[in-house]
Design a protein around this nucleic acid. Structure first.
Lengths: 152, 152
DNA sequence: AGAAAATATATAACATGTTAAGTTTAAGTT
DNA sequence: AACTTAAACTTAACATGTTATATATTTTCT
């Protein structure tokens, strides 16, 4: 059997943890989880707001998690929600002034940490890594269509 | 500000999800979570068993999570624990016969799925990805020693 | 129009992730 | 030897991940 060390899910997890470690202290200093920050960050890019389901895709969060996160951020007045005119089922989430300010306050430090990672790892390698990750996802999802073990 | 799409943590997360999707159905068919499988797999490689803290490192699980998982697997008689002779604080966890059999039953299918991933993505790219991920972790942990934003 | 299917989101229930605090045993100090 | 500190887990508490189910609204069908 393949050695346990070479586990792709674990390697990806470890890399993610190592990267997150660079951001978490800054996030914690502002009482935000990585997920909450993703939500604020996504909303910042789209001032007119968006539906829960769209936000869910952008942030790569499942609806139940997003639902809880939105409730939290709403209670903190960082975001607000309104019912969509065209469809009473939809909530439109948008960034409140407080949330907008928070993103702008935090962004420089966040960018600096990104720059730091780029610098220690190397720009070229980082780009290559992004490409490989994207391609891996693409190939695996492609293969999902013709289900699985068909190794022929 | 950098575009929200290019988020390293999210790219790593997405890749991990895509990979896991290939394994989860098989695991679920045997009532195992990915974490539970990691524990069984690690113990399989070391028949004499190991301490919780070692298991924790090997499986990249924090102690509280591992503690719960071990309780679950113990209740299912897949593993067993005994107190270490040299130190009453340590639990030595080892694979029970039932657990050993389960790993051997599941391993072929698991290996087949690994082979499938290797095939659709390409062996060379997979190796390159592993190398990049390892190097990223290494560089980031190195940088941890001289804390952060020192971009000079 | 009225019933049935689909959609958008919420809630429930339980496993895991994560930080902090508690327990028991070992090691070090004086 | 008594006291303190440290180490190995465990438990607690709460956020998130994940699947299943519920609820409200739209759409579709007839």
């Amino acid at each position: 059997m393949r050695t346990f060390e070479r586990s792709l899910p674990m390697s990806l997890l470890k890399a993610r943890e190592a990267v997150m470690k660079k951001f978490i202290p800054h996030l914690r200093a502002h009482d935000l989880s990585p997920q909450q920050w993703r939500v604020l960050r996504a909303l910042y890019d789209d001032p007119k707001g968006m539906e829960m389901s769209v936000l869910s895709e952008r942030c790569f969060l499942l609806m139940p998690s997003l639902s809880r996160i939105v409730q939290n951020l709403e209670a903190r007045q960082l975001i607000s929600r309104r019912t969509a005119d065209h469809d009473q089922r939809c909530s439109i989430i948008s960034l409140d002034q407080l949330g907008h300010e928070l993103v702008e306050v935090m962004a420089p430090e966040s960018e600096a940490r990104y720059a730091h990672i780029t610098q220690v790892f190397g720009y070229g390698k980082l780009e290559l890594l992004y490409e490989l990750l994207d391609e891996l996802v693409e190939k695996l999802e492609e293969a999902d269509k013709s289900p699985l073990g068909e190794t022929s």
